[in-house]
Design a protein around this nucleic acid. Structure first.
Lengths: 141, 141
DNA sequence: TTAAATAGTTGTATGATACAATTATTTATT
DNA sequence: AATAAATAATTGTATCATACAACTATTTAA
């Protein structure tokens, strides 16, 4: 295995992560964590904190707080699970969906502007490799 | 521009970042921030917090604390700048270099294991695209 | 029917970061 | 030369994202 590729990945990843984290903090109308949680609820439907924590690979206490914050902003409803008195479903609201769509759009616009001089192949390839990396990590657990 | 690529990048980046941050926290003998700062001192030579903050694109207060933490662990020396009584140089120590090398090795090993089933082209391409992304962000500022 | 397991919340802690205020020193202006 | 302005660094305070541990309420298993 060529060590140079690994070194490049390793070196660039740390910079990459920091840049993303910082740039997202600036944009932050909807924080990264809220965005990801909303997206999860939007694409996979209502769920309780246990399920969400599993899906997002976070601690349930973390998700509990994030969900409470979304509820406070009225981006989600917290509905009791009729079949389990301990449990709830968090369900994205219309307002939440609108905010999510807008956040998505802002993100796409920014990315689209940033990567405007890349070739179509590069953009395509970058997306695929990020996806592949994430899948590799997941299957590694 | 193909919107699908952008969507993929956008969706995968947030997961990617979170995975990295979490996995680095687990490994953490040397935290990510400390690692990056040490690496900077190692590759670009001694510098004060102002310079480091510029290079790393962080607030000087952030770097000041990180540098103080490294000094406390004796991974760096803090030497007064002879030409400016306000300023200091942080200089990596032998111990710091050893720790950095070990941390690097651990990271390469982990990455090497994780990406063992990728093709050489994929690894190469992933590193190049991450680098290109970082450069694109930098030149965008 | 009691014991064990589970869903969720809340208290506490840590790491990474920024902004604002402060200190000490240097550079520029009068 | 004396004073004002700029600068390097530190420290106080705050926020966000996260985890672990303790706890409550409820459900499931023995």
């Amino acid at each position: 295995m060529n060590k140079e590729s690994l070194e490049t990945i390793e070196n660039e990843v740390s910079v990459f992560v920091r840049r993303i984290v910082i740039s997202e903090k600036r944009n932050a109308k909807l924080e990264r964590s809220a965005y990801i949680l909303l997206r999860q609820l939007s694409t996979h439907g209502p769920a309780g904190v246990k399920i969400l924590a599993d899906q997002l690979q976070l601690d349930i206490s973390t998700v509990s707080r994030q969900a409470a914050a979304l509820e406070h902003k009225q981006y989600v409803d917290k509905v009791p699970n009729p079949r389990d008195g301990r449990a709830y479903f968090y369900r994205i609201t219309d307002l939440g969906n609108r905010e999510l769509d807008e956040a998505k759009q802002r993100r796409y616009d920014r990315l689209s502007n940033l990567l405007k001089d890349w070739s179509e192949e590069e953009r395509e390839s970058f997306g695929q490799l990020l996806r592949k990396y994430n899948q590799t990590v997941d299957s590694d657990n």
